[in-house]
């Protein structure tokens, strides 16, 4: 058993778990944050994507012990003061979700994508970068629109602030 301490959504948390416990299970079961999902066993579907130290990672392919001392952001940590993050808002506005199961991973991937590319994103890049996130409901059409929309809006907001 390992005692694991990390920062999750800005709060320091500790938990005791097997060394073999995956980060996603630590988040879901020890911390009760069930927004992060498990959709496959082979690290491909992306329903489990969270941010570790500011970068998107697949929490189903990392042990909780590997993530000890890191800063994790989950889907629950994205909205601030009840306000949806611009990416969350764009997914709603563009109908970028249906059953909602892949959605947390999609949103976390999209936030990371926009962090790296800013408003320079184009459709081909978005589709290429979604390789690790599988959605069975939307046909990706509205997910792509939502990410492009959010990137533009966030780029615009950044410009306005500068």
């Amino acid at each position: 058993m390992a005692k694991v301490t990390m920062t999750v959504n800005g709060r320091q948390v500790s938990g005791v778990c097997d060394d073999r416990t995956l980060l996603v299970h630590f988040i879901r079961e020890n911390l009760g944050l069930t927004g992060t999902h498990v959709g496959c066993d082979t690290s491909q579907c992306g329903a489990c994507v969270v941010h570790m130290d500011g970068q998107s990672v697949k929490s189903c392919s990392i042990l909780a012990a590997q993530a000890a001392s890191s800063a994790i952001t989950t889907i629950e940590g994205l909205a601030q003061n009840g306000e949806l993050h611009p990416v969350q808002a764009a997914f709603k506005a563009h109908h970028g979700l249906q059953c909602g199961f892949c959605t947390p991973g999609m949103v976390m991937t999209a936030v990371d994508m926009i962090r790296r590319h800013g408003s320079n994103l184009d459709e081909a890049t978005v589709r290429f970068e979604l390789e690790g996130n599988i959605c069975r409901c939307t046909g990706y059409h509205n997910i792509v629109k939502a990410i492009l929309g959010a990137a533009q809006e966030m780029g615009g907001a950044r410009q306005a602030a500068e």
Partner: peptide, 9 residues
């Protein structure tokens, strides 16, 4: 290689 989340690790 892989996807962005995989490339980060």
């Amino acid at each position: 290689i892989g996807d962005p989340a995989v490339r980060h690790m």
